[in-house]
Design a protein around this nucleic acid. Structure first.
Length: 175
DNA sequence: GCCAACGTTGGC
DNA sequence: GCCAACGTTGGC
């Protein structure tokens, strides 16, 4: 069983949307990056993924989802009205894939990107790698376990022990 | 709104 | 196959 992380923009489809889906299940359509697609194709039923809110005020892991259906063709690729339409993909020769995910549970509290960055054991986490833009990526089991261990701890604990940089009196922007 | 990083496209 | 231009992602 493997672990993953899947990004979604809460303004478009966030945890509140997933909660309202029938059986709290949704197909993960619209991925148009080969690497991300290949990771979805590597998923098996029973794998779990962090549900991550991106492009939002407070980027964070907010829930865990179960992979409930392995990769199959993404029909939005041949839907001309879709934002994700791709003329190169056809029902006969589909290029893009999706999986179905079902909400396992919301985290007890969101684990923010800012918080993840403060933890040394996560230093080599793919999500935190420079320039990372993949919307679907694997999560190492050690990272998965460590992140879940943060759930029951106060969010500011570690931040206070590891101040990011000295605060200056001047609140104006750096230049 | 800015911008760094990266993927894709297309000319050659 | 190279690589510059362009588009997208996503944090800040």
């Amino acid at each position: 069983m493997n672990y993953w992380l899947m990004k979604t923009e809460p303004a478009t489809f966030g945890l509140e949307h997933l909660k309202k889906r029938p059986r709290q299940t949704e197909h993960w359509d619209g991925v148009r990056n080969f690497q991300a697609r290949n990771f979805m194709r590597a998923m098996a039923v029973g794998d779990q993924a962090f549900f991550y809110h991106s492009s939002t005020a407070v980027p964070a892991i907010v829930a865990i989802v179960d992979i409930v259906r392995a990769a199959y063709p993404d029909p939005s690729a041949w839907d001309r009205t879709s934002d994700h339409f791709d003329a190169k993909s056809t029902p006969e020769k589909p290029i893009w894939s999706m999986v179905d995910v079902r909400l396992a549970r919301a985290l007890k509290r969101p684990i923010t990107l800012a918080e993840l960055k403060t933890h040394a054991p996560l230093a080599d986490m793919r999500l935190l790698a420079r320039g990372n833009r993949l919307s679907v990526m694997p999560v190492a089991p050690k990272h998965w376990k460590f992140i879940l261990s943060l759930e029951t701890k106060p969010p500011n604990d570690e931040v206070e022990k590891n101040p990011r940089r000295p605060q200056t009196a001047n609140k104006s922007k750096e230049r």
